[in-house]
C-alpha cells in the first residue's frame, strides 16, 4: 500500500469500531455453534467462516448497505450479518427450516441470498458469480447508477476460467466492481502453491489492466482501508480492483472435511495466534475502547443472540413437501403448459 497521511479507517467512530468487533464475535460464535449442531446431528452440513472475519467485516462496513451489489463468498457469514441477515436466518438455513430466507430449505447452508440487501444467491460451483458480477456492474454503469458490485471468492476459484473472463470484462469496460479474494491458502486440501505459480492472486490484476492490492486479511482495519478505497474508486468511475486478503482457515474446509490429512497441527496453531479477533482486541484495548468487562458484555450479548437463534430454528417446521415442486418458472400468460404436475410438459 502507498503511504498516506490519513487512512479511511481513521474516520471510523469508536461506536463503529466496537460494532465491527461485535460482528466479528457474533459471526465467530454463530459459526462455532453451527459446528456443534452439526456434530449433534441437528444440521447436515456447515461451511465455516472462522478466521476470515476481519476481511468480511471490513467489506461489510466499506460497502453501501442495500445499495451496492454483493455476491458473497460462501464463507461470508459476518458480511451478511452486517447487511441485515439475522442469526435466526442463519440458523434456519443451517437446518433447512421453513423461514429460511436464502432458499426455503433448498440449498445447503451458507448459500446466502437476501434481495432487500442485494445479496445475490450463492451457488456451489465456485467462481461462477465472478463474471455475473461483471454483468451487474455493467448494468449499473450503463444505467448511470452509482452502485458498486462486490464479489467474493477463495483463491481456489481463481483457477477457474470464470475468474479470467470476469476480470477481463471488468478491465475492458472499466466496471464499478471490486473482486475480493479471501486467500486462505487451501482449496479444501490443495495448497495455493499447487493452484498458481505467482506469489499473489493480486499479481494477476495487471493482465486485465486493473488494479491489484494485497492486504492482511486478518487485520480488520487494514482490510477496511483497502476495501473502502477500492469501493470509492469504483464508485468514482476509476475502475475495478482485485483485492487479495491473505488469511487462514484454522478449521477444516467444511463439516465434511478432515484437515489433519493435509497440514500439520503446528501450522494451524501458529495461525491461531494471528486470529483476527485477537488482533483486533489488542488494537481496541490499546485505544482504550475495550477491557475484560466490555469483552464479557459483548460476549454475553452475542451468546444470547446465538441461543435465541438456535432455539428458534430448532422449533420451526421444515418447509412443506409440496413447496419443493414450486417456483421452477415464474407465472406468465405467455406460456401454455399441457400437463399439470410435470415440469417439461
Amino acid at each position: 500500500m502507498t503511504k498516506r497521511q490519513k487512512r479511511p479507517s481513521d474516520e471510523l467512530s469508536d461506536e463503529q469500531l466496537l460494532e465491527m468487533y461485535y460482528y466479528m464475535v457474533l459471526s465467530r460464535k454463530l459459526d462455532e455453534r453451527m459446528w456443534i449442531l452439526n456434530r449433534q446431528g441437528k444440521a447436515s452440513f456447515h461451511i465455516s467462516g472462522i478466521g476470515h472475519e476481519a476481511i468480511q467485516v471490513a467489506q461489510g462496513f466499506a460497502m453501501r448497505k442495500g445499495h451496492d451489489w454483493y455476491f458473497p463468498h460462501y464463507r461470508d457469514i459476518a458480511t451478511c450479518l452486517i447487511l441485515g441477515v439475522t442469526p435466526r436466518h442463519m440458523m434456519l438455513a443451517l437446518m433447512g427450516k421453513e423461514g429460511d430466507i436464502f432458499s426455503r430449505g433448498r440449498q445447503m447452508p451458507e448459500h446466502f441470498s437476501y434481495k432487500p440487501a442485494k445479496i445475490v444467491s450463492v451457488s456451489s460451483p465456485v467462481a461462477t458469480a465472478i463474471p455475473q458480477a461483471a454483468g451487474t456492474a455493467l448494468a449499473s454503469k450503463l444505467q448511470g447508477k452509482d452502485e458498486v458490485t462486490i464479489v467474493g471468492f477463495g483463491e481456489g476459484a481463481t483457477s477457474e476460467g470464470d475468474f479470467h473472463e470476469g476480470l477481463n470484462w471488468a478491465g475492458i469496460h472499466k466496471l464499478p466492481i471490486v473482486f475480493v479474494c479471501q486467500n486462505n491458502q487451501y482449496a479444501i486440501s490443495v495448497h495455493v502453491s499447487k493452484q498458481m505459480a505467482v506469489e499473489n492472486v493480486a499479481d494477476r490484476a495487471v493482465a486485465y489492466g486493473i488494479r491489484g492490492v494485497v492486504v492482511d486479511g486478518n487485520d480488520v482495519l487494514a482490510s477496511y482501508d483497502v476495501m473502502k478505497e477500492a469501493i470509492d474508486r469504483a464508485r468514482r468511475g476509476e475502475g475495478p480492483t482485485l483485492v487479495e486478503a491473505k488469511t487462514y482457515r484454522p478449521v477444516p474446509h467444511s463439516t465434511a472435511d478432515d484437515d489433519r490429512s493435509y497440514r500439520s497441527r503446528e501450522e494451524v496453531e501458529a495461525w491461531k495466534k494471528r486470529d483476527p479477533i485477537l488482533l483486533f482486541e489488542k488494537v481496541l484495548m490499546e485505544r482504550g475502547l475495550l477491557d475484560e468487562a466490555k469483552k464479557q458484555e459483548v460476549l454475553d450479548r452475542v451468546m444470547a443472540e446465538v441461543d435465541d437463534a438456535v432455539d428458534y430454528a430448532l422449533n420451526q417446521p421444515y418447509p412443506p413437501i409440496e413447496s419443493a415442486a414450486e417456483g421452477v418458472f415464474g407465472d406468465s400468460p405467455l406460456v401454455k403448459w399441457s400437463k399439470k404436475g410435470t415440469i417439461n410438459g
Binding site: V120, P131, A134, G135, A139, D162, E165, N168, W169
Partner: peptide
C-alpha cells in the same frame, strides 16, 4: 454500443454477464 454489445470471444461470460445484467434490470 451500450445496447448492442460486442463481447470478448468467451461464451461462458457472454451468458454470465447477461445473467448479471438480468439481475440488475435488463
Amino acid at each position: 454500443p451500450d445496447r448492442v454489445i460486442d463481447t470478448p470471444l468467451a461464451e461462458l461470460s457472454i451468458v454470465a454477464v447477461a445473467i448479471g445484467m438480468a439481475l440488475n434490470g435488463y
